[in-house]
């Protein structure tokens, strides 16, 4: 399903963080959102999932309820010291089909096991979350997204601070979702990876800079423009190009 943004403004406590965004994530598209820290990428995803209500404009999600959107928050927002197992975390993905008070059945656990296998975590069901590495935790979260079986998948910096092998595996999974005609949107910092994997890109710097095919959106003059706009409002805003391992304030 397509997601249409119409003059969308999003923010916190009345202060906009995303200004006047117009455009469409086409049905079945695979789009990367690129931009410096603080440019409103996470805010935009929260708006699309419905966590944040628009300050202005609107988001058209067709007839699909927001429950049909799978959202993977930036990893820093998950409390990994929480006393839960990998299976507990992944099983949350059943939410849409089971609802608030639904009983998780034996088949559901079968599905959890299968999803874990698909992300390369066979046999990790009973491991405590705080014993996982960052890469393993991210794999588990991808397994949860699989269980959600949603038409729209939103991933916020899924590969930040993740090792190369894991990144490659998870990109393959993302391509599979794309092949299944789901609409996939991911926030990324690695511009080379975006050029390689993503047909479409949205370049943000608080205001949208460019949105379209990756080659055009990430053309050198657009990147330069984004860099200038960023410098204009914050001289020190970190701007990544290529591989990054540092990671700004988690939002």
């Amino acid at each position: 399903m397509a997601i249409e943004l119409r003059d969308l403004t999003l923010g916190y406590d009345g202060h906009p963080a995303v200004h006047h965004l117009d455009g469409t994530f086409a049905d079945g598209s695979l789009t990367a959102i690129v931009g410096p820290n603080g440019s409103g990428k996470s805010t935009l995803l929260k708006g699309i999932t419905g966590i944040l209500k628009p300050l202005g404009g609107s988001i058209e999600r067709g007839k699909t309820p927001t429950r049909n959107i799978a959202y993977l928050p930036q990893s820093a927002e998950i409390d990994r010291s929480f006393p839960a197992t990998v299976a507990d975390l992944v099983a949350l993905g059943h939410w849409r089909s089971r609802g608030l008070w639904g009983v998780i059945t034996g088949t559901d656990y079968g599905a959890v096991r299968e999803a874990l296998e698909a992300v390369g975590l066979r046999g990790f069901e009973d491991r405590a979350l705080d014993t996982l590495s960052g890469g393993q935790a991210q794999r588990a979260l991808f397994a949860r997204v699989m269980l959600q079986d949603a038409d729209v998948i939103l991933l916020d910096e899924p590969f930040t601070a993740i090792d190369e092998k894991t990144t490659a595996d998870l990109i393959a999974l993302m391509r599979r979702w794309h092949g299944e005609k789901r609409t996939v949107v991911a926030v990324l910092h690695d511009i080379h990876m975006v050029r390689e994997v993503f047909p479409d890109a949205l370049l943000m710097a608080r205001e949208p800079v460019a949105w379209g095919s990756t080659a055009e959106a990430l053309a050198p003059d657009n990147l330069l423009k984004a860099r200038r706009m960023t410098e204009a409002w914050d001289e020190h805003a970190p701007w990544h190009e290529g591989h990054t391992h540092q990671h700004g304030r988690a939002a």
Binding site: I51, I69, P73, E77, I78, A84, R96, W101, Q148
Partner: peptide
Amino acid sequence: RPLFAECLDPNFLRSVSGA
């Protein structure tokens, strides 16, 4: 269950449910 989800991953809960 919702309380568990709210503790573990509040943004996830908010994305799937208004509860």
